[in-house]
Design a protein around this nucleic acid. Structure first.
Lengths: 239, 239
DNA sequence: GTCTATATACGGATAGAC
DNA sequence: GTCTATCCGTATATAGAC
């Protein structure tokens, strides 16, 4: 599966994402007409991510958001009850979609090696499609309420568990090397996160998302697989 | 070298760090008596890191800092000319020390494998000793001025280059596998960063800094070394 | 050198007109 | 449903007393 396959496969149209967002936050949105909501909410959340990822969520004033959306502050407050709730909507949307897709797409594969590859590709591609969300989730999680921080932590651990479960399975089947699976899973996440956290680096070096995913897989297999299972000296598993 | 060796070896007393900080920012500090400066600056920067890493630098008000230090806002402004400059002092201090120590300690070794291990241990241990700085540098870099962001980026690339240079050397000598050295160096950094960015995870699992460094080395050697050079199925290179 | 008191500006949030 | 006008709190920074 390449990135363009992924874009076709996962029908993650912006429309759909925002409809789910609305479904998850139905009780706090004062607007009634669904058509108005989906159109404006998309507009608002997009703008909020744009500004936040540029200067930080705290530094974004409601006046900034008002200017960027072309809506008044009063109107904005019809879509969320406070600035903090806006942050929570942004957080939860990205999280829900990530975990569901990660599980679904790695479950489709049968061998641990294939599962691992699928999970890595899914995560990297997803973070590419929804980069603003991922960046926001990572950088702003610590500034939320205690309860929201807890959710962020448990989401982080859930994602990690998808990977450590695959590694455990591979070890049970005797195809993976015996290493601490949770530490390894943590490292896999850390490597993948580099794609959306240090984007400027990869843009500057003209590394494509496929090339990046390939290299993550190459590195992860070097760590996880038994020696004789690793393809040596390849520049990329699909190259 | 273990962590306690490192603490002894590197005579990174707080006193010394702050004296260097003062030396680097002599022109913007209005205070004259060196003794007063070192004492108070240490106090101020410590407090600023404590608050910033809890709630974010932007959210930290000068009132917060005043309360935490027990000094008035007027007094504080004798040590820096603006809140932004305070951030810059915090940034530059950590950066300077990191790069210098990383180069020094990896240069002491002769083989690429030993250099790589030394560089990893130094970076991990350093981030442990100066965790508040590292965390601050990572999380707050994007909110600084354009010029300061440039410095942060070039510092990031400098650190990465220390690692990619070692990898290149190892490949020239034929002991390392042929892989993209800059991508590999980026992954090494990403793994190491997990130690201070996701600290709660390692604290919860009671993973010591030595155990963590061992595992990074294990993973990095799996990625970088040629197959026959890797110690297979070890739980840690020193264990 | 350090403190108290204050100037000036801008933040989030809301009320009420349309 | 959306906009304008405004409340009230707090931000950074400085002036002047000690």
């Amino acid at each position: 599966m390449t990135f363009s396959d992924f874009q076709d496969l996962v029908n993650l149209s912006r429309q759909k994402i925002y409809q789910e967002t609305y479904a998850q936050n139905r009780e706090t949105i004062r607007i009634k007409k669904e058509k108005t909501i989906v159109k404006n909410l998309a507009h608002i959340l997009d703008a909020a991510l744009r500004i936040s990822n540029l200067k930080g969520f705290q530094a974004m004033s409601m006046r900034d958001l008002s200017r960027e959306t072309g809506m008044s502050t009063g109107s904005l407050y019809a879509y969320f009850s406070s600035k903090e709730e806006l942050a929570e909507i942004l957080q939860s949307t990205g999280r829900a979609i990530t975990l569901r897709l990660l599980r679904e797409l790695s479950d489709e594969e049968s061998t641990p090696k294939a599962k691992l590859r699928a999970a890595i590709r899914t995560h990297v591609y997803l973070s590419e499609v929804m980069r603003p969300w991922f960046y926001f989730s990572y950088m702003e999680a610590r500034n939320l309420s205690k309860e929201e921080r807890k959710k962020a932590i448990s989401s982080e651990l859930d994602t990690e568990k998808v990977f450590s479960d695959i590694i455990d399975l591979g070890q049970e089947q005797g195809v993976f090397a015996r290493r601490d699976s949770r530490l390894a899973a943590g490292f896999i996440k850390a490597m993948m996160q580099d794609w959306y956290l240090k984007r400027w680096k990869y843009a500057r070096r003209e590394i494509s998302v496929d090339r990046f995913a390939d290299f993550v897989i190459e590195a992860v297999e070097a760590i996880c697989l038994k020696q004789n299972e690793v393809d040596t000296n390849t520049e990329g598993s699909r190259a």
